[in-house]
Design a protein around this nucleic acid. Structure first.
Length: 227
DNA sequence: TGCTGATCATGA
DNA sequence: TCATGATCAGCA
């Protein structure tokens, strides 16, 4: 039976009820229910699982810089995991504000903190042989950073943004940060944005994103599935 | 073989 | 074009 995309969930409880109902279903089954084609080529399927689950669960924000479930303030993150529940990839959080006018003055008002304040982690279980359609959805979990996690995120954010503000963009590598890192985030290596150079001058530089390291998200998932 | 740097699709 | 959704693939 083909289903219409659902209305946004009215509460976290309703959202988690929907999550419970898709747990164990494969991406192929869910796509079929909503008459969505499954891409054949993984190279051209980046992000497809995330967009499928947004529709299945009734997310609203589309490509706006807003939480996926705007009314609930909940961000949806699908995350590929192996059968043990260990993440296979880092997780994109948001873009890095490179221009002074777009930068938050402190951690409290940063996009990173707001995005991560409430996250629905939805594991997609990946085995070496499984096609995209064969991958099952795992048990979703609603998460907010505990004080230790929040402290680590804040420390990384402050260190990284210090570098951005000081015009040290070109020396920022993905090696910095224990849980949060800055990496390129662009359609290709030619993309440019305005940023700040070492003398405070405006420069053209590659767009970058904040990502959560996979060992950090591994800790989040472990904590939950142990209970 | 884990991680970094690069890349692909879609929508407003 | 730039934000979202992420995964790919080569190299240390």
């Amino acid at each position: 039976m083909v289903k219409a995309p659902p209305a946004p969930p009215g509460s976290e409880a309703e959202l988690m009820d929907r999550v419970l109902h898709i747990s164990g279903r494969t991406l192929g089954e869910l796509a079929a229910q909503f008459s969505i084609a499954v891409p054949r080529d993984p190279i051209h399927a980046k992000g497809w699982a995330g967009q499928l689950l947004e529709r299945v669960l009734g997310a609203t924000a589309a490509s706006a810089p807003e939480p996926d479930f705007q009314d609930l303030g909940v961000e949806l993150k699908t995350i590929p995991v192996n059968p043990h529940g260990t993440p296979l990839e880092s997780t994109y959080v948001c873009n890095v504000p490179l221009e002074p006018s777009s930068r938050a003055p402190n951690w409290e008002s940063s996009t990173v903190r707001r995005k991560l304040a409430r996250v629905l982690w939805l594991p997609i279980i990946v085995t070496p042989q499984s096609s995209l359609a064969q991958r099952p959805v795992g048990r979703g979990m609603l998460w907010s950073p505990d004080p230790v996690q929040a402290g680590s995120l804040r420390q990384d954010w402050e260190e990284l943004m210090d570098q951005v503000c000081l015009g040290q963009l070109e020396s920022i590598t993905s090696h910095l940060g224990t849980c949060l890192q800055i990496r390129p985030k662009a359609a290709n290596a030619r993309a440019r944005r305005w940023g700040v150079g070492a003398q405070g001058e405006r420069i053209r530089t590659g767009p970058r994103g904040f990502y959560l390291r996979s060992n950090f998200t591994a800790g989040i998932l472990r904590e939950y599935y142990a209970n």
